[in-house]
């Protein structure tokens, strides 16, 4: 039988203070969310009420979807798929060396590591849509500017994730390889990479799935693929074709994602 002691009461007080602190924090977060919704005009009932019918009108024009031009979409779809694969391949080739130079445990020194990190953040801070516009201006319309935009923006992301995976490898096999006389390069090829390959594959496959979705958007700025067809249908106000293209893209995304999931399983 325990009598409530002074110590227990102290602990309970401490506990109540912690609970109150948490509640206060949650309250602040909720307030900030409402503030953001208000600032962006979400509580403007008038606009929302008027928007409803307009949305309904648009939706009604979207059905039934018009698939009659499907033959014209096959080529652009293949382009989009090719863009996503080519963009991923290029991203790997640029990311891996940058990641190895950026990760503190494989980088030759602090300055190199920091400058590679800077390059990676710079690449990822430019949205691929902006890169797409720049590359369309540089090399003209088509899939090529799309691939370059995807690869370069993704290098910033993929390189960062690669570097993080490399940074967290078990250092002990690295020491064992060094003890056996392995050079810095051999430590990377035979002690670092064997540990992280499944993770690198995982990151890469996710990125490929993302590339497929992103390359449809890139078509909007003239970087080829199915996105180009989508924006063309929007421009001539053929919402029934727009919905048909969107359904087609959705189906392809499902196929690409499940292919990615299957690949990941194989590489585990």
């Amino acid at each position: 039988m325990l009598a409530p002691s002074a110590g227990h009461i102290g602990i309970l007080h401490e506990h109540r203070r912690a609970v109150l602190r948490h509640a206060g924090l949650v309250g602040v977060i909720v307030l900030v969310c409402f503030g953001a919704l208000w600032l962006t005009g979400f509580f403007d009932a008038q606009r929302l009420i008027e928007g409803g019918p307009a949305l309904g009108q648009l939706a009604s024009e979207m059905v039934p979807p018009d698939f009659s031009r499907w033959r014209a979409w096959v080529g652009p779809l293949v382009d989009t798929l090719a863009m996503s694969i080519a963009g991923t391949a290029l991203a790997i080739v640029i990311s891996l060396p940058l990641a190895l130079l950026a990760a503190p445990n494989t980088s030759p020194n602090f300055a190199v590591s920091q400058s590679c990190r800077l390059i990676l953040s710079a690449l990822r801070s430019v949205p691929e849509l902006i890169m797409g516009i720049v590359f369309v201006a540089a090399v003209g319309f088509g899939a090529l500017p799309g691939v370059l935009a995807l690869a370069l923006h993704s290098t910033g992301m993929v390189g960062k994730f690669y570097a993080e995976a490399i940074e967290h490898v078990d250092p002990r096999p690295l020491e064992a390889a060094r003890a056996a006389g392995a050079s810095r390069f051999q430590v990377i090829t035979h002690a670092v990479l064997p540990q992280v390959l499944p993770q690198l594959a995982d990151i890469t496959i996710y990125r490929w799935e993302y590339h497929f979705r992103a390359s449809t958007v890139l078509g909007i700025v003239g970087a080829g693929g199915i996105g180009f067809e989508l924006i063309a249908a929007l421009r001539v106000i053929r919402y029934d074709q727009v919905s048909a293209i969107l359904i087609t893209i959705l189906l392809c995304v499902v196929v690409v994602d499940s292919l990615g999931a299957w690949l990941r399983k194989q590489l585990k």
């Binding site: 078990d170 002990r172 096999p173 020491e175 064992a176 390889a177 056996a180 006389g181 392995a182 050079s183 051999q186 035979h190 002690a191 064997p194 540990q195 499944p198």
Partner: peptide, 23 residues
């Protein structure tokens, strides 16, 4: 080593072969 310091996901053969890297 005390903690053997092998690569867990690599095979026995692959781990042993790293002993040849110095050559």
């Amino acid at each position: 080593f005390q903690q053997h310091q092998l690569i867990g996901r690599a095979t026995v053969l692959a781990n042993v072969l790293t002993g040849r890297l110095g050559y």
